[in-house]
Design a protein around this nucleic acid. Structure first.
Length: 491
RNA sequence: GCCCCCAUCGUCUAGGGGACUAGGACGUGGCCCUUUCAAGGCCAAAACCGGGGUUCGAAUCCCCGUGGGGGCACCA
């Protein structure tokens, strides 16, 4: 095993955690657990304009639901607290000033208006929009004077104008760019708060982060980050730029809502509300840009912790495949213990206004476990167990290739037969019903089809015999009689 | 416009010069099983972006195209 990794997941609280972020967090978590290192959460809330109230709590909730616990973070504290960047502003200011003193950064007094004008001119000339370096040429005395006079300013990085910078990414190798193509990026804004480029580098260093996992959106500024590390004289962490997630169509970065026709949830907590189990979401996420071998795909968290490796990360962008999530959800539901499934089903039934208890659910879980792909499908399929009455479609009460009269006769004979039972026991009931079908010269499917609709109100249901056993003689007779009436006088 | 990254079935991927007649999974189609629906089993169709090199030999290495993605904010 490798030495303990300190890995951080650093979301900005600008909205709900989406599956892309969740996948990054997962890889962070796996690396930390695998090496028995630390998984730390840092909240990057230096942009006050985009701050969303409650977003931070949502992120915690989503990570918890997915089964990732963190060792350090704003809510649990830790040796490098505070973990919210808005509470570390002094640190960034100090470091920015340090860079100015060492000649790696400078004060810039340009207004946003001037910057916009410059940018516009450059674009008109079809040049890359970039800071024109006006304040870079200021002598330091003048700059200090203007600063002390209270003039609004930012601190910019003094990017070398010559030479090349080579950055090393764990999955992509060396990436070399001409420094001339880089900009003099702003490090510290005029409000005194840092931008990502400064804050993240300072924190990663101070918090002793060993592996920086982020998506490839950061590749263009990767050289800048390396330059900042070098300007401070710090040792770099291992950089890992993962692929981005694409829309199911493969066109464009994953956006809020997608899927053919219907909308697909892109937030883990939304997936939860749609009846997905966290095990499936984790399994699905883990395989978007990572693989273990050429055949193994079913994983639960402990497997993943053991098997994850950075070397198997795939650099190319991956389109999200929601039907595969459905598949994994079915797989994980089937692998659940019955009691576990039953307890997870309770809230889904309640959400559908069906008052059920886990005890009531337990006997039916074995009947539906291998038939459902989401927890909510259990409600669709077996809700009739908990409704007082069912509403069969009279048309559906007519057996396949049968007349209404024949169907009514089959129903009536079934009622007689069931009346003869003390208690409905699956084995004997099935034997009797099959005998009846034989007597009536019907195929088993014809008779069962009628009974299924009569008993469940549905054409698709859990296995009929077991269903009848659970429902019991009284209820069955009630529903069968009701069906017989419907067949005689359909409204 | 400029810079960067990527490129195997529709999708996610295995593949690290000969083991490739290119493997697995989802999805799709068919068959079997079957009281419906599933699940399960079996089978099928389905890919190395193009062109040049390098090499005895290239899906694998290099170059050029092309395509896709990302970035160019006092956002992250």
């Amino acid at each position: 095993m490798n030495s303990p990794a300190r890995v951080r997941f650093a979301p900005s609280p600008t909205g709900r955690l989406h599956i892309g972020g969740a996948r990054t967090a997962l890889y962070d978590y796996l690396l930390a657990r695998q090496t028995e290192g630390a998984f730390v959460i840092r909240i990057e809330d230096t942009d006050r304009k985009r701050y969303v109230q409650g977003a931070e709590e949502e992120i915690y909730k989503a990570l918890s639901w997915l089964g990732m616990e963190w060792n350090e973070g704003p809510d649990v504290g830790g040796p490098f607290a505070p973990y919210r960047q808005s509470e570390r502003t002094d640190i960034y200011l100090e470091h920015a000033e340090q860079l100015v003193e060492s000649g790696h950064a400078y004060y810039c007094f340009c207004t946003t208006e001037r910057l916009a004008t410059v940018r516009k001119e450059q674009q008109a000339r079809k040049e890359a929009p970039r800071y024109d370096g006006l304040c870079r040429r200021l002598n330091s005395d003048e700059a200090h004077n203007r600063k002390h006079a209270g003039e609004a300013h930012v601190i910019r990085f003094k990017t070398p104008r010559q030479g090349k910078t080579t950055s090393v990414d764990e999955i992509r190798g060396e990436i070399t760019v001409e420094n001339a193509t880089l900009d003099d990026y702003i490090l510290l804004k005029s409000d005194g708060l840092p931008v990502y480029h400064l804050a993240a580098m300072v924190d990663d260093h101070l918090m002793e982060i060993t592996h920086v996992l982020r998506t490839s959106e950061w590749l263009p500024t990767f050289p800048l980050h390396v330059l900042i590390y070098k300007a401070f004289g710090w040792e770099q962490p291992a950089w890992v730029h993962m692929s981005v997630l694409l829309n199911p169509s493969g066109k464009g970065k994953l956006s809020k809502r997608h899927g053919s026709g219907g909308a697909h949830a892109v937030y883990p907590l939304e997936l939860k509300e749609s009846g997905y189990v966290p095990e499936a979401v984790v399994n699905w996420l883990s395989l978007m840009g990572w693989s273990y071998d050429d055949r193994t795909e079913f994983f639960i968290m402990p497997d993943l912790i053991g098997k994850f490796s950075l070397a198997k990360l795939n650099p190319s962008p991956a389109a999200v495949n929601f039907s595969k999530l459905d598949h994994f959800n079915g797989l994980h539901i089937r692998s659940l213990k019955q009691e576990d499934l039953a307890s997870r089903l309770v809230p889904r039934f309640r959400a559908a206004d069906l008052e059920v208890t886990e005890d009531e659910l337990r006997p039916i879980t074995p009947l539906i476990q291998e038939r459902i792909r989401t927890l909510d499908e259990a409600v669709e399929m077996s809700g009739f167990f908990f409704r007082n009455t069912v509403q069969p479609d009279p048309q559906q009460l007519i057996g396949k290739n049968m007349s209404p009269v024949e169907s009514a006769a089959a129903l009536s004979r079934s009622i007689d037969l069931i009346q003869g039972f003390e208690r409905l026991a699956a084995e004997s009931l099935e034997l009797a019903l099959r005998g009846l079908a034989d007597d009536l010269d019907l195929k088993v499917g014809q008779l069962f089809g009628i009974l299924r609709v009569a008993v469940t109100g549905q054409r698709v249901s859990p296995p009929l015999i077991e269903t009848m056993e659970i429902l019991g003689k009284e209820l069955i007779l009630q529903r069968l009689n009701r069906a017989a009436e419907l067949l005689e006088s359909p409204e």
